[in-house]
Design a protein around this nucleic acid. Sequence first.
RNA 1: GGCCCCGUAGCUCAGUGGAUAGAGCAACAGCCUUCUAAGCUGUGGGUCACACGUUCGAAUCGUGUCGGGGUCACCA
Length: 596
Amino acid sequence: MPFTNFIQEIVIKNLTDLYSQQFSEKDFQINETKPEFEGDYTVVLFALVKTLKKSPEILGNELGTHLLKSYPDFFFGYNVIKGFLNLEITENQLTLFLQKNYNKDSFGKKPSNHKKVMVEYSSPNTNKPLHLGHLRNNFLGWSIAEILKANGYDVIKTSIVNDRGIHICKSMIAWQMFAEGATPELTHEKGDHLVGDYYVKFNDEYKKEVGQLIQAGKPKEEAEKEAPIMKKTQQMLLGWEQGNPEVRALWEKMNSWVYKGFDETYKRIGSDFDHTFYESNTYLLGKDFVQEGLQKNILFKKEDGSVWVDLSDKGLDEKLVLRGDGTSVYITQDIGLAKQKFNEYNLDKSIYVIGDEQLYHMKVLKEICRKLGMPFADDIFHLSYGMVELTTGKMKSREGTVVDADDLVDEMIATAEKHTEELGKVKDFTQEELKDLYDTLGLGAMKFYLLRVDPKKRMIFNPEESIDFHGFTGPFVQYTYARIQSILKKVESEHLAIDHIQLTRNTLLPLERQLIILLEKYVNAVADAATEMNPSIIANYVFNLAKLFNSFYAEHSVANAENDQKKELRVTLSVMTATVIKNGLQLLGIKVPDRM
RNA sequence: GGCCCCGUAGCUCAGUGGAUAGAGCAACAGCCUUCUAAGCUGUGGGUCACACGUUCGAAUCGUGUCGGGGUCACCA
């Protein structure tokens, strides 16, 4: 059990012993002691003062004395300053913790809790390549999946590919009109980029046609409706829905190009899925619930035959769930798919990693499911994340201000190569090893950069900052890991049996003590990251750990420690720091290099 | 306009009821014959948007104001 939780528990017990009153963990706080005070953990007494009618000083001293007496192995000393009871943990306890866990790969991982959760993320459209926003989504989804796994969940990663609709038809029409048979094989362009090019081409042509119509005297609205290319596209969508073989063949061909491109990108960035849903298979789902809802009077029909749900009692509006012509809208399919997910996979929780512009939509989905009496309604969780903006403003695909995912990955890896070459530390690496290293560092930098901020908040992507490999960055943490490997290599070559370290009593130096206490907090960081659905907690933790280790490293030598006991202690400390960095970064999808 | 989110150092962000508000970047000053300087140490830099309230205690909770963003489609 983590120290904080343990202290919480025994303080409750001690308070009952002393004052015959029951307290819960909400009645007081256990904090880390601020560095300017003596101690490791602090019990904040103010909240207890009132109920116990004792002064903070008396309460602190009574509690402190009692804690010390009942747990002499755990507490070494205490002091009371104002309303704060600062507790010092025994060196024995700290070294015991280190000894038990330093070599445990499973440190921070919980056993199965037999709960199943689905994480849906990435979910691209097939009319254009992935961009920076998708990267934040992918890294977030993948990381949350890993974090949940570490907390004992059985996780299924899914993606729903939006492979049908008017936007795909736009690319298809433009390709027919302008491509002259161009394929990824002929042009040597990645399939998703090729299809994306024709999506852009469509918009150019559309704008041109609308402009001409306006010039010919048509009102803007009419011109937008009547542009020939738009009409053709709508015709094509109709053809697709009716199953026109030519349209379907072209659709399948162009989508297959896109999938090949996506797969390449996913492979590079390390995204993967246990199952992929395609909207072309799911877009008809949900209609049966409309009938059911009508019978139960939860939904109502308007004169034109369209079906609606009234959510005004929940502060939301009326929402259409079925068009007058009987075709479904997006929310219809979402209801159907939500149910299918729970039924097919027997889920305890279903997480959707979707941008915060869809907060309203997801709220509506949940509310409709609730109204329809679906038992899983409350287990739908929208992990919403903020938009990625550029220093120059928002990304807009139509204005060509998007940062393409493939380009960005290339740039990050190239930056890793540049920095590595400048430093010249790995001249003996093979070509293969170098490539691996650049990938590890480039992707590490990018993932860390996008995951280090709270997902809920929108963030600004600063290109200069993103390629910085110093400070609060992935490579900084990776560097710390590599440094430790270097120490261990040296120590190993001295034939020290690091697998059989016997820690004996040492006098812990401040940095050694701080490191152990920080390492001990990893378990709580992993748990917090899961409850908050927030990988940035891990990123911050792992950075602080690396920073602290680097201070320790600069101050004290491991290989040339003052004596053998110190050496053993520090080797153990180094091994454990490396393990925690490795495990923590793994939760972010970031690899560690042995050398860099 | 209704609803939702955000406002902390020059910039990017931590900190959601506790002690004198912290990092990174940028700026400046130091540290490599000793385990990797992608590092370490130090200096300067804050009216936590503003006001009122709740509390022993507020960046954190409540109300209001100002500023920024999102959303309110028979689009996805």
